[in-house]
């Protein structure tokens, strides 16, 4: 019997499975695994066409480069604000919406709308609104006799983080809303009978039972916060100075403006390690937290 005609039923199913999987295997090999291998091997090279082997030279250089360190710190600060804001504001709005109110659907739609916009819209629109001279905000403030704002100069990182929250908080709100609706009403009723006030019920029932949602929201926010790019590219161009030099923006400039693919690749790998480490730590912490309930 030929090799192509399998003898058993299970061998035939296996052949079908692999036939169906073939495009996916080729795709993920060519567009994920080979590129990941290439980014690692390029990170060991230097020179304008990344063809001189330097071992771990790029990594040593990156770890001692003040500009790289600075952009890591900027990115960490940005991600921290976005994570904290996503959880606090997203949960707050979800709890407000998780009440028998008229117009809930309309509120939910309005709160979710910015999430649908491209980072290009978010960036351009807010750069226009916040522009010190041409911006609608300052023109309105002056017309009302109020002091002008210079937020993109005085606290640029906080400002672009706030703009990011403007875009994303509707998404975390929907996640928290789904989480809240999964908590059985009987828990709250039982606690009420036992005399627990709203504050206690929030800390002892709502928050612990929401732990899986909170974990998911924080993992997603860390991952997306650490790889933010458009905000720096469109709103601030990394400035003023290097105050908003987010890591992916920094890597983009090293790769495509300075044309140093080797150095940029090493920085990508370092940022990837940070992201994976953070995700694993959060998941482990989350798992430990879950045991109690």
């Amino acid at each position: 019997m030929s090799v192509l005609r399998p003898r058993t039923l299970s061998a035939r199913y296996a052949r079908t499975a692999y036939l169906f999987l073939l495009p996916a295997i080729l795709f993920f090999a060519a567009f994920f695994y080979v590129p990941i291998g290439n980014v690692v091997s390029t990170s060991l090279m230097s020179g304008p066409s990344a063809d001189r082997f330097t071992g771990l030279g790029n990594y040593a250089q990156a770890l001692s480069d003040p500009a790289v360190r600075h952009s890591f710190l900027v990115t960490a600060g940005f991600a921290l604000i976005v994570v904290a804001g996503s959880i606090v504001l997203g949960l707050g709005l979800a709890m407000a919406l998780d009440q028998p109110l008229r117009g809930r659907v309309a509120f939910r739609v309005m709160l979710l709308v910015p999430y649908l916009t491209s980072v290009a819209i978010v960036g351009l629109l807010w750069r226009n609104i916040l522009d010190p001279e041409l911006g609608v905000l300052n023109r309105t403030l002056v017309a009302l006799g109020l002091p002008e704002q210079q937020w993109l100069n005085t606290s640029p990182l906080l400002t672009i983080a706030a703009v990011t929250l403007w875009q994303n908080v509707g998404y975390t709100m929907v996640l928290f809303l789904a989480g809240l609706q999964g908590i059985p009403e009987t828990f709250h009723e039982a606690a009420k009978i036992d005399g627990a006030d709203a504050w206690h019920r929030f800390w002892r029932i709502t928050l612990p039972l929401l732990a899986p949602t909170t974990l998911f929201v924080s993992v997603m926010a860390v991952i997306s916060g650490l790889q933010a790019f458009g905000q720096a590219y469109i709103i601030t161009n990394g400035g003023p100075g290097d105050a908003t030099d987010l890591s992916v923006f920094h890597i983009f400039n090293v790769a495509f403006r300075a044309r140093d693919f080797g150095y940029a690749s090493a920085q990508s790998v370092l940022l990837l390690i940070v992201i994976v480490a953070f995700t694993l730590i959060q998941l482990r912490a989350g798992r430990r937290g879950e045991v109690q309930y």
Binding site: I36, V39, Q227, F261, A264, S268, V269
Partner: peptide
């Protein structure tokens, strides 16, 4: 677990 920026340069 692989963010897009990791693939950006090799792609």
């Amino acid at each position: 677990m692989v963010p897009f920026f990791v693939r950006m340069i090799p792609l």
